[in-house]
Amino acid sequence: MGKFKIAHTMIRVLDLDHSLEFYKEALGFEEVKRRDEPKYEFTLVFLGDGSPNCHQLELTYNYGQGVPYDLGTAYGHLAVVVDDLETAHADHKAKGYNPTEPKGLSGDGKPRYYFITDPDGYKIEIIRN
């Protein structure tokens, strides 16, 4: 059997432009590629962190979706790492993303992560690198 590498994670979004703005502004993601399929009534936009061969986030926009998606109970969160947790937290707070307070699990009292929420309600964990 060959070696497997994770390629992307897909989430459905209600307002593609709003979601693109969020992921670019809040996390610095860049559009890697886009695929418009008017015949099948959807657009796919792949976002990455700028590094070569990075794991990508696929935003799927289905034409005519008039109501928010039900995220259900199976989805947990998307996680990203950042070198400077405190600066990222302050920036997210200043931009109105309502981050949770940073928390830690290691017992040393040092904050390790916090969460923000995207326009569709998906939770994003920001983790100290």
Rank of each mutant, 00 (worst) to 15 (best):
P111K: 06
L105T: 11
L78E: 02
V13L: 03
D36K: 11
K39G: 07
Q65A: 11
H55D: 05
K95H: 05
L71S: 05
Q56F: 11
K5Y: 09
L16D: 00
E86C: 12
D84S: 12
K93R: 10
T43S: 09
Y63N: 01
S106L: 15
L71W: 07
L20M: 11
H89E: 01
Y23Q: 08
P52N: 11
K110D: 06
F4S: 09
D70P: 06
R35P: 00
D36F: 05
V81C: 13
V45N: 00
D83H: 11
A88K: 11
A74L: 14
I6G: 11
S51G: 06
T100I: 05
H92V: 04
F46S: 06
V45Y: 02
T60V: 12
K3P: 05
E58F: 07
K24L: 06
D49Y: 03
K3N: 13
H89Y: 10
A90P: 08
G66I: 03
E125L: 10
A26V: 07
T43D: 07
Y23I: 00
G50C: 01
M10W: 06
H89G: 03
N98S: 12
V32W: 01
T60D: 03
P111R: 02
A26C: 10
T87Y: 04
D70I: 02
L105M: 15
M1A: 12
D84Y: 13
I124L: 15
G66M: 12
D15H: 13
R34V: 13
A94N: 08
P102C: 02
A74P: 06
I116N: 02
R112M: 15
Y23F: 13
H8E: 08
P99G: 02
P111L: 00
Y113N: 04
R35W: 14
R112W: 10
A74E: 14
Y61L: 05
K123L: 15
G66T: 08
